[in-house]
């Protein structure tokens, strides 16, 4: 697939996502609620060193072939959302994630975020698209902690086995910056991205 075909496919996918609501039956009304529990592995994807101008992709892979992280950590969360209209829900999510550095020290993150979800396809199968903005308390087991703002993107598919209960598979991208305002600490500015891949149980009404 060349670049032009890729762009065309992407645009078609976007048009599809935007147009689906126009043709799909709606399940939700203003005031409908969703309560979601998720759990699954969390994969660290990259660490960017701004002052060095480098991004270490693939579990923080360095030039010497060592990775900064162990490949798999974990993530779990609780989310509650209320629909503002049949397609858009807002709410909050709180979670707990962890990853191990390659020396077995533990990096934990406790995110608390405001979440906006669009559900263009809904009914027995749903494809929610979520944008989250919040803060995440991060700490390292051998010392050090940080509380950054961050953003998250998430999508997946939910299958409602009853009218109210659904099972889902979700993934996305968490973008967590560590940015300092003090000039003498600019060289510590960095960016971490992680991908959670979670199974979810959702109750809706």
């Amino acid at each position: 697939m060349n670049k032009k075909q890729k762009i065309t496919s992407l645009l078609l996918a976007l048009v599809l996502i935007v147009c689906v609501p126009a043709f799909s039956a709606t399940y939700y009304d203003n005031g409908s609620q969703r309560f979601t529990i998720t759990a699954g592995p969390q994969l660290p994807v990259s660490v960017t060193d701004f002052s060095g101008g480098k991004t270490y992709v693939g579990w923080g892979l360095k030039e010497n072939g060592e990775t900064s992280f162990k490949p798999v950590g974990g993530f779990g969360s609780l989310a509650y959302q209320v629909f503002m209209n049949p397609y858009v829900a807002i709410g909050g999510e709180i979670g707990y994630g962890f990853n191990f550095y390659n020396d077995d020290t533990l990096l934990t993150n406790v995110p608390m975020l405001f979440k906006l979800t669009v559900v263009p396809l809904q009914g027995k199968f749903e494809i929610p698209l979520s944008l989250g903005v919040g803060i995440s308390y991060m700490s390292v087991s051998d010392g050090g902690a940080y509380l950054p703002f961050f953003i998250s993107f998430e999508t997946g598919i939910d299958w409602y086995i009853t009218d109210h209960w659904g099972l889902g598979l979700k993934s996305g991208l968490w973008v967590i910056p560590e940015l300092y305002m003090q000039k003498e600490r600019f060289d510590q500015n960095a960016l971490l991205t992680v991908v959670p891949i979670t199974l979810s149980v959702t109750y809706r009404q």
């Binding site: 900064s68 390659n102 991060m138 509380l147």
Partner: peptide, 22 residues
């Protein structure tokens, strides 16, 4: 929370790059 949590930290993400396997 920001002030109390971020005063004493020291580049925890970049420090992670320095870690070596046990």
């Amino acid at each position: 929370s920001f002030v109390s949590c971020n005063l004493d930290n020291n580049g925890i993400l970049l420090n992670g790059l320095e870690k070596v396997p046990s």
